[in-house]
């Protein structure tokens, strides 16, 4: 429905894509899939950014985002507060990405308790001049799934401890501890760039 038509025919008419979010959420909860589609288009970039930041691999991130959005549809009737849809969806995305990381860790020989340090070789001048971001990415892949998820959600997405705790199924105190350990690992890995 175009904006022009809105203005010409009925001043009170609101095109669906401009509806307030709680209205769209309630309609989607009723089974209105076109309302759900509008919500997905509003939130898809955020959901994908979260799964990409945690997984750091576009193919896996897309799969995780897709599964998160489908999970959201199936669980939507259980959402109590329509105004909290965005935060609720973000938590589903974080949880989905964490599960993918854990599945990877089961197949890769990474121990959840003791993250291996990066190989201790001195970076040469070329690497030093190279991308710090790339180094961070490598260092992150050395972290256990939950530590990595906690750190990304805190430092890159700016979440609070309570919200992260819900995603990783731990207490806020445990989340704080994991972020601390992750940060210590990353600080060490990036030491050559100091």
């Amino acid at each position: 429905m175009s904006g022009e038509r809105h203005e010409v025919t009925a001043p009170s008419f609101v095109p669906d894509t401009a509806l307030p979010e709680p209205v769209l959420v309630e309609r989607a909860q009723d089974g209105d899939d076109s309302a759900f589609e509008i919500l997905l288009r509003r939130h898809q970039d955020t959901v994908y950014r979260i799964t990409l930041r945690i997984l750091r691999e576009p193919g896996d991130a897309r799969d995780a985002a897709q599964e998160a959005l489908i999970t959201a549809w199936r669980k939507l009737p259980t959402l109590r507060e329509p105004a909290g849809f965005g935060a609720w969806l973000r938590r589903i995305a974080g949880r989905r990405a964490l599960n993918v990381l854990r599945a990877r860790a089961d197949t890769d020989p990474i121990d959840e308790e003791s993250a291996p340090d990066l190989p201790g070789r001195e970076p040469d001048a070329e690497v030093l001049a190279g991308d710090l971001r790339e180094a961070l990415s490598r260092a992150l892949s050395g972290l256990p799934p939950s530590q990595r998820t906690c750190w990304v959600l805190r430092e890159m997405e700016g979440w609070g401890y309570e919200e992260i705790a819900e995603v990783v199924d731990a207490t806020p105190t445990a989340v704080r501890g994991r972020i601390h350990r992750a940060r210590a690992h990353l600080v060490k890995a990036l030491a050559p760039w100091r």
């Binding site: 089974g31 899939d33 759900f36 589609e37 997905l40 288009r41 898809q44 970039d45 959901v47 994908y48 950014r49 990409l52 576009p58 897309r62 985002a65 897709q66 959005l69 489908i70 549809w73 199936r74 009737p77």
Partner: peptide, 20 residues
């Protein structure tokens, strides 16, 4: 970061097959 093209379409195909 923007979501990959077709993500929402893929999701909606599954959603529509699960009308509740």
């Amino acid at each position: 970061t923007t979501a990959p093209v077709g993500l929402v379409d893929d999701v909606m195909r599954i959603v529509r097959s699960e009308r509740r």
